[in-house]
Amino acid sequence: MPTYTDLTRCDGCGECVDICPSDIMHIDPSYRRSFNVEPNFCWECYSCVKYCPQHAIDVRGYADFAPLGHKVRVRREPEKGTISWKIRYRDGREKAFSFPIRTTPWGSIKAPGDYAPPGMEALNSPMLAHEPEALKVTALPTLAQSDTAAQSKV
């Protein structure tokens, strides 16, 4: 039902609970394993599938329109900066794809507070952080504020 958890693989770590944007992966109190409490609020976003350390979560397409027998499986490897997909059709055909996900090390973004502080006069200019350099043009474009601009020209 959109996502479901393999009882034998799940160790109840809670990563899926922590990541699900819909708050629908919960830990079953008696099995101590995760399950999807509200399949009809699942977007099949695969966040829980990607973040499960045990690869215990899989997806079965929505019963409303997805005939049985398919599989779309994924392995996301942040440290390698890649994601790999394996697709199996209802009729058994298979496809595989792999794509990059990031070009820099995780955690390497320079915090805005680590740049030299801007002068206070800049706070009153229309310029945002890192401009105009980050725009790669010499000046921030602007429109003339003329009286005609304030006229409605229907």
């Binding site: 977007w43 695969y46 997806v59 697709i87």
Partner: peptide, 11 residues
């Protein structure tokens, strides 16, 4: 991703 699931499910 669901659209890929539809492709796989509906051949």
């Amino acid at each position: 991703i669901s659209q890929a699931v539809v492709w796989a499910a509906q051949n």
